[in-house]
Amino acid sequence: MADAAEGRGAVRRRAGLRLWLSGGWLAALAAAALLAPWIAPHDPLAQDLFAGRLPPAWQAGADPAYLLGTDSLGRDVLSRVLHGARVALFVALVAGTLTALIGAALGLLAGFYRGWVDVAISRLVDIWMAFPPVLFAILLIAVLGTGLASIIVAIVVIDWTRFARVVRAEAMAQGAMDYVASARVAGMGRLRTLATEILPNCLPTIGVLLTLEMGIAVIVEAILSFVNLSISTDAPTWGGMIAEGRLSIHQAWWVLVFPLVALFLTVLAFGQLGEGLKDRFDPVLR
């Protein structure tokens, strides 16, 4: 017994650390993104051709005004990473939330009502998933034009099936539980049962998927910026910076590395946040 309790304690401590690290990084990033116009030391678009490829402040030949150095056009890397966070987090938040809302709603309906509702939604998911996602995305951008809105639409249109499938299975499993039969015996209507009994039991799953989806959205935005399908080329995005930095990797590694690290940590943090939140706040696991 003592062993089991200790084991659980250890799991909780680890879950707590994970939650604090990932939540801390994302909170700091969100604050930096919100405050970027005020805390960024330079205009992210301002070029200074006489200050091109300055190394980070702690290296020889650096200008202390440019903490993380400058790129080949003399733009401040730190300011661009900070402004890039605005784009990344905006896409993550909006695309993730919309995807979750649409996918989870369809998944809940299919899994709970079964019958023809399920047949219709499941067929739609099957057909949808037959398209290769990258091709699908590029096709959509080609039709919608480049820009943040198109990226968000593309992510939602492609990824809602992920939520729909997983949430459908979860709703089905929950629907077979006796507490649902009990709600019916008590005289509760179907829709109300779905909203007050089933949905709360699916929320942990939806939450984990949502944070994963936010990480995916950050990557997708970076990829599309990388291949120049996002917003205008000199606007500060992590993907755009990585694309540019790649060209001058031997002369100025910092242009590539800093946005890459920011991207990596952010995607990792989103994934860990979901798991951490679930472990911490799910009364069933607690």
Partner: peptide, 23 residues
């Protein structure tokens, strides 16, 4: 049936399944 349902109730075999774990 709904207004009648108050009058006939049921106790289930497995309370772990019949009590919503998140309530």
């Amino acid at each position: 049936l709904r207004p009648l349902r108050r009058r006939f109730q049921m106790i289930f075999q497995d309370p772990l399944s019949s009590l919503n774990p998140r309530q």
